[in-house]
Design a binder for these strands. Structure first.
Length: 280
DNA sequence: CGGCAAACCTGCGAGC
DNA sequence: TGCTCGCAGGTTTGCC
């Protein structure tokens, strides 16, 4: 579910309610998710003031007033929902509950438990194993066609697979890779190395445009994802190819009977959607 | 090292 | 109705 636009949306929603607030209650309801929670996590968070919240790739980073930071990942099905109902009974998959000094309640809910929450010293974040190897932020100025080309050079793997690799570019997932490749007119089957150069000059702005539009729409809600307010995202209504196998390509303006419409195939065990006529 | 399949876990829709 | 199967936004591990 949550790729860069969804995590960015959640990050902004959390920032509004948490930055400057003190955590007065932390309820940890299981030992961990993808990995065990740190020893005594509730005790180490209780009483701390939140000084900043930012996003790196698909990770949320929450800085505390004692020099520590929370690293949080939503996995496939994670949600962070804020309410104003302290003491409300937790739901089946509410794993960690944070309460602030002004009555906000943040529920970390994750049915599939692929999410993650851990602690790191702020000064050690850059070198943290989860974060150290990440590639460039696609919305930052350093993400240029030249920079992307350098990371694709020499790679035989399909461009679809390469863009899912978080060390190539940070934050893309299955949805936005498909959408960006469509808008750039690049086949997901092309060897990554062949995208270096002129195609990368189309791909970089396509990635940026798709991500910005998705953030503006509050992300994409397919099954699990909601914003911190509980509202759905609505970028799924703007998908050109993702989850649209057999439907008409928005670029071709041809009958599905003639073109076959959007095609679905499997690459590296994930579904890929594309239009063979407009992407080569 | 590069690339791919499987594993992690739950829920849901489709088909029988 | 109820069962089984396949599939789902991500990441890591282990095997060629």
């Amino acid at each position: 579910m949550p790729e860069l636009p969804e995590v960015e949306t959640v990050c902004r929603g959390l920032g509004v309610r948490l930055v400057g607030r003190r955590l007065v209650r932390v309820d940890q309801r299981r030992p961990g998710l993808r990995q065990p929670f740190p020893e005594d996590m509730p005790a180490r968070l209780t009483g701390r003031r939140v000084t900043a919240i930012r996003r790196r790739a698909k990770y949320l980073l929450m800085s505390l007033d004692d020099g520590w930071a929370v690293i949080l990942h939503l996995g496939m099905s994670g949600r962070l929902v804020i309410s104003d109902a302290p003491g409300a009974p937790p739901g089946r998959h509410d794993h960690v509950i944070l309460e602030t000094d002004d009555g906000a309640v943040v529920m970390f809910n994750d049915a599939r438990r692929f999410g993650l929450m851990t602690l790191s010293l702020e000064t050690g974040l850059a070198a943290h194993p989860l974060l150290a190897g990440l590639g460039p932020e696609p919305l930052a100025p350093g993400f240029t066609p030249k920079a992307l080309s350098a990371r694709l050079a020499g790679r035989a793997t399909p461009i679809k697979t390469a863009l899912l690799d978080q060390t190539v570019v940070a934050g893309l997932g299955n949805i936005y890779v498909a959408e960006a490749l469509f808008h750039a007119g690049i086949s997901p089957l092309r060897p990554a190395a062949s995208v270096a150069g002129p195609p990368a000059a189309r791909l970089v702005p396509a990635i940026r445009r798709v991500l910005k539009a998705a953030i503006a729409a509050g992300g994409s809600s397919l099954r699990d994802y909601v914003q911190t307010s509980g509202e759905l995202g609505y970028f799924q209504h703007q998908f050109a190819v993702y989850d649209r196998a057999g439907l008409p390509c928005p670029g071709c303006h041809c009958a599905v009977a003639e073109t076959g419409g959007i095609q679905r195939l499997t690459q590296a065990n994930r579904s890929t959607y594309y239009c063979p006529r407009r992407q080569d």
